[in-house]
């Protein structure tokens, strides 16, 4: 049976994402976010979503767009500053938030992609993050047991991808994208450049296509910069 993963656009890729599902969304801040898929979720106007994503976007871009439309029930993130609407919804109790140390977040994705049910990490030992969690001592140091994430869909963004779903990321837009791609029950990859198999050097592929179920050529990338910081020439 031929492997057929290419879909025409975000609408087709996201056709069976429904309200109340759990979604992983790649990116760090606004860097490497799946802009096309997020726009499609806004258009579909599905609600009650649980989003696992390192950040929650800004008020008018990224996952902030889903928050504006009250589409998110719960966020699982490591850092959610830079978003006034998020803070308002969280403090008023409209939005449920689970804050997870960043390395724990990444490794819980990795564990899912490696077929492991849980990890042990020292992050959060002795803090409120440890409440209710199993603590185990290895070689004199305490570790928390943290479970692999379980998600319905993973939405990721890559620089280049081929028809088999093999992905290459660019610079720091890699971040959580390959990990979430590995962890999703169904993984949707949007790419800046979709190429024929054989175009990408097998030695240069960051994520094997076996983890990717649907892939499409994204359009109209804004790639907004959150903190433009430059040196000025004198």
């Amino acid at each position: 049976m031929p492997i057929h993963k290419v879909v025409s656009n975000a609408e087709e890729a996201c056709k069976d994402i429904q309200s109340n599902m759990t979604l992983m969304v790649g990116g760090f801040g606004l860097c490497g976010i799946p802009e096309n898929c997020i726009s499609e979720l806004v258009r579909k106007n599905i609600t009650g979503l649980t989003c696992i994503s390192n950040n929650a976007g800004v008020d008018d871009f990224g996952l902030g767009l889903l928050l504006q439309g009250r589409q998110v029930k719960k966020m699982i993130s490591s850092y959610v500053g830079e978003n006034a609407e998020f803070e308002r919804q969280m403090l008023s109790g409209e939005l449920e938030v689970e804050l997870v140390p960043q390395g724990t977040l990444a490794t819980r994705c990795m564990a899912a992609g490696y077929g492991m049910p849980a990890i042990y990490t020292p992050a959060g030992v002795g803090t409120e993050v440890a409440l209710g969690k199993e603590v185990r001592n290895f070689n004199g140091k305490d570790y928390l047991m943290e479970f692999a994430f379980d998600s319905d869909f993973a939405l990721v963004k890559a620089w280049k991808g081929d028809h088999k779903g093999n992905l290459i990321f660019r610079a720091t837009s890699r971040n959580f994208n390959p990990l979430m791609a590995m962890a999703g029950k169904i993984t949707i990859a949007e790419v800046e450049e979709l190429v024929e198999p054989g175009t990408l050097d097998p030695d240069h592929i960051h994520l094997p296509g076996i983890y990717v179920h649907r892939i499409f050529q994204g359009v109209n990338y804004e790639k907004r910069i959150e903190q433009r910081t430059v040196r000025t020439r004198s």
């Binding site: 606004l30 990444a106 490794t107 837009s173 890699r174 990990l179 433009r228």
Partner: peptide
């Protein structure tokens, strides 16, 4: 836009720099 630090500021690489995933 693809090259930022953990504070989300735009940055640069140096000769010998390397990128990797969050895990």
């Amino acid at each position: 836009a693809d090259l930022i630090n953990a504070g989300k500021q735009t940055i640069t690489t140096l000769p010998g720099s390397v990128f990797f995933d969050s895990a």
